[in-house]
């Protein structure tokens, strides 16, 4: 007699799993560097933007560098506060919290060609390095148009940042792990396995007594 309500419950489960395959309760914050600005985007799993969520930025030692609130689109941008790794923490209220870490390399390399923090390959500025044949070849047209290496680098970086921004965003979003049908079925499978295990233990206990 138990089989009928049970099959209904199972049907209910399948209905639920089809009804909302990619929606649930978790917040995520993504961040990427563009020029000397760091952009962040916050959302709940399922795609809803986190409006007026609190963003806090920490250095690796856990010192609070700055804080702010996300706008209507769940975005919050701020200038790079210091050339170190940064931990971005989102607090969306009601116990929802997300984290994103930007590595030091990302912050330093993506920054503008700032003379204060010169990239390593900036050393051979005045005289061309003969070993790097490719480099000189690339440099030749630059001198022909009257652009210095530094200027060219800055222009390139700016253009690349602009072109790559959607790519950064896509990569950041790809890290989001959406619950898939496989996850759901796998989880149910685990539960069924546990029930089986418990039934086995109880059956053994009953046989002994």
């Amino acid at each position: 007699m138990h089989s009928r309500p049970r099959s209904i419950v199972i049907a209910l489960i399948i209905f639920f799993s089809l009804a909302g395959p990619a929606a649930a309760h978790k917040v995520m914050v993504f961040a990427w560097v563009s020029g000397n600005t760091i952009h962040t985007e916050s959302k709940f799993s399922g795609g809803r933007k986190v409006k007026a969520g609190k963003i806090e930025v920490f250095d690796p030692q856990g010192k609070l560098l700055l804080s702010g609130k996300t706008n209507e689109q769940g975005e919050f941008s701020f200038p790079i506060p210091q050339p170190s790794a940064l931990k971005i923490v989102l607090d969306a209220g009601m116990g929802h919290r997300g984290e994103w870490t930007i590595s030091r390399d990302e912050v330093v390399n993506a920054g503008p060609a700032d003379p204060a923090t010169p990239p390593a390959d900036n050393t051979g500025d005045g005289k061309p390095v003969p070993a790097a044949a490719v480099q000189t070849a690339a440099r030749a047209p630059a001198t022909a148009t009257g652009l210095s290496t530094e200027e060219l680098q800055r222009v390139l970086e700016k253009a690349l940042d602009r072109k790559l921004e959607p790519v950064y965003r896509m990569l950041a979003e790809a890290k989001e792990h959406k619950p898939t049908m496989t996850d759901v079925i796998g989880g149910i499978g685990y539960i069924i396995g546990l029930v089986g295990l418990a039934a086995y233990m109880q059956a053994r206990r009953q046989r002994k007594s």
Partner: peptide, 28 residues
Amino acid sequence: LAQAGILSAAFFVASLVHVPVGPSSVHL
């Protein structure tokens, strides 16, 4: 036992059914 397992599975899946409310989103 079987009932507990099935309700556990239902609870497990229910969290995927979400209801958008105000600034947040909540689920069953």
